[in-house]
Amino acid sequence: MLSTETVALGIGLLAQLLFSSRIVLQWVQSERAKRVLVPTLFWKISLISSLMMIGYGMLRHDPVILGAQIISYGIYIRNLQLLGDWRKLPQVFRVGAYVVPVLALSWFVVGTPHFSLWTMLNNPIPGGWLVLGAVGQSVFLLRFVYQWLYSERKGESVLPLGFWVVSLAGSVLILAYALLRNDAVLLLGNAFGTVVYARNIVLMRREQQMLATTKVPQ
């Protein structure tokens, strides 16, 4: 029988594979267009991946991962709503997207021999590590809070330059946390993401410079 650690690793790696696939998708489309694009599929993959990472966070008894993914999950849904694609999804999927995480978290609170809220709260993670991870995830999470507020003002789902700058900073901090925690899932996911975030910053700066030089004087 598979151990809890093995199951957690499998779920986490699959989630990061999906997270990476959305980044590759966004990266390829942006490179082709020579500007940063965010396809709708990016948010759909993010939603599924985030749900899996919620499960991973519970199995790892990691409050840093769990807290960040719960908030991110809600933001992914909101972006799909802003794009007008949420209601286009099958009703079963939409209902499940709300019900499944609630049931999973309820199960976590009740607790099992393999994972429980009580075990997580008593997890002997050094305080300094938790602070580093919490700061990293907070910075990483702020990118979506910033993106969400920016999109709400625009009335559409947009990923501005600030999103990628904050993503890069948060990713570096999470990489440090992953190294301390020996967390292969976080390490692999954020190592790849760091490269893409840096590339998107370059693309957006280049696009802004082109717009500035071609702007017609008033």
Rank of each mutant, 00 (worst) to 15 (best):
K154L: 14
P101K: 00
V100R: 04
R206A: 09
W27R: 11
V28G: 02
L130Y: 09
V139L: 14
L186R: 03
G55H: 08
S50K: 08
F192I: 01
F140I: 10
F144Y: 09
K34P: 02
I201P: 02
G96Q: 11
G189Y: 07
S106W: 13
W164T: 07
K215H: 07
A198P: 03
S46C: 05
W43T: 11
V109H: 01
V7P: 11
Y76G: 08
F140P: 09
G170V: 09
S116G: 04
L211K: 08
L80M: 15
S30C: 08
L14K: 00
L41D: 06
A104Q: 02
P101M: 01
S106M: 10
L89Y: 07
V95L: 08
S30I: 11
L180G: 15
H61Q: 09
A191N: 00
V145G: 15
S3D: 11
P101N: 01
M120T: 08
W43D: 11
P126D: 11
A68D: 05
L47T: 14
L203T: 01
L141R: 02
G12W: 07
V131N: 05
L59Q: 02
W118A: 00
L117I: 06
P124V: 04
F19Y: 15
A169Q: 05
D62E: 01
R143Y: 00
T119L: 06
G136S: 06
L51W: 06
W27H: 12
I174H: 10
V195Q: 02
V196Y: 02
T112I: 15
V165M: 15
R87W: 09
I75D: 04
R199F: 00
R35H: 08
R78D: 14
D85Q: 09
E207N: 13
F192L: 03
M120G: 06
I174M: 13
A134N: 10
T112G: 03
Q26L: 01
Q29K: 08
L41V: 14
L89Q: 11
G136M: 00
G67T: 05
Q208R: 15
I174S: 12
V165R: 06
A97D: 06
V110P: 00
W86P: 05
T194E: 04
W118R: 01
V216E: 15
L161T: 13
W164P: 11
S30Y: 09
I54K: 07
L25Q: 12
F93L: 10
I77E: 15
L82N: 06
M52G: 12
A176H: 00
L9S: 05
L47V: 12
I48A: 14
W86K: 13
L37F: 12
L47W: 01
L14I: 07
G111F: 12
A33P: 14
G136D: 04
A104L: 14
L187A: 14
L188V: 15
L18K: 04
S20R: 01
Q147C: 08
L14D: 00
Q29L: 13
L51T: 07
S21N: 09
V185Y: 12
A212T: 01
L121K: 05
Y73D: 12
Y56H: 03
V145E: 04
M210I: 02
S3L: 13
